[in-house]
């Protein structure tokens, strides 16, 4: 899901940097208003938590292990604006320390995983949960928020890949991501629909259930007051 350098043309990564910068500025403005002097330590904590979630591998059927992107569960626990900033920070650290995700693709990666995923996760959770305070509706809402959040992010990523042959090729030669929409969209979406999305949804559900059982007060989506 982390787009490396070389896959996106400047026509794609420059506008995505600008779009992400706009969302980030809006998030920081909103959070500084509500958190005032606690903004930096709070966001620092949230970003470290977002980064560490990706360190936890869970066993999945077939004998292998997988981990979550974590944007869905961070959104449910801390809210979408905090998730946006904290997941972005985690992605920037990953790009700068591990080379996971390209430098030119930071804007695109942050847009896909720190903007699209948290908001889709939140909307899906609210829609499915309705007014339920617990039970199967909350469980279904938690699973689907992680699942559909990741699938939506993968769909946006696939579109970014898929438009490259249309907007940046030379005499039939692909210069960036070589697969068109007809290949990029089904391949990316199907693998997230049948595997990665399920892992993300399951981890979101497991962690949210644990929080609701042990410390429901700390869960953003179950609180009346919104940060």
């Amino acid at each position: 899901m982390h787009i490396p350098d070389g896959y996106l043309s400047p026509q794609t990564y420059v506008p995505l940097y600008a779009v992400f910068a706009g969302f980030l500025a809006a998030a920081l403005r909103k959070l500084r208003k509500s958190l005032s002097s606690k903004t930096v330590p709070y966001l620092g904590m949230a970003a470290a938590f977002s980064f560490l979630i990706m360190m936890f591998n869970v066993p999945i059927p077939g004998g292998t292990t997988g981990h979550a992107v974590g944007a869905g569960i961070v959104t449910l626990l801390l809210g979408p604006w905090v998730a946006m900033v904290s997941v972005s920070v985690a992605l920037i650290i990953q790009a700068l320390i591990f080379g996971d995700g390209g430098i030119t693709a930071i804007g695109a990666n942050c847009f896909n995983m720190a903007v699209v995923m948290p908001f889709v996760a939140l909307w899906v959770f609210k829609l499915v949960r309705g007014k339920a305070a617990g039970g199967w509706r909350v469980s279904a809402a938690a699973f689907l928020s992680g699942y559909l959040g990741l699938v939506a992010a993968s769909l946006v990523t696939a579109v970014e890949f898929g438009i490259q042959p249309l907007i940046a090729s030379e005499g039939g030669k692909p210069l960036y991501a070589p697969y068109g929409l007809e290949i990029a969209v089904p391949v990316m979406t199907v693998e997230h629909l049948v595997l990665f999305g399920i892992i993300e949804g399951a981890i979101t559900l497991l962690v949210l259930r644990y929080f609701l059982k042990n410390d429901p007060e700390s869960v953003y989506v179950m609180k009346e007051e919104r940060v």
Partner: peptide
């Protein structure tokens, strides 16, 4: 504020 957040977050990590 964003730069400080990254620095603090890295230390926390």
């Amino acid at each position: 504020v964003f730069i400080m957040t990254i620095i603090l977050s890295y230390k926390y990590i």
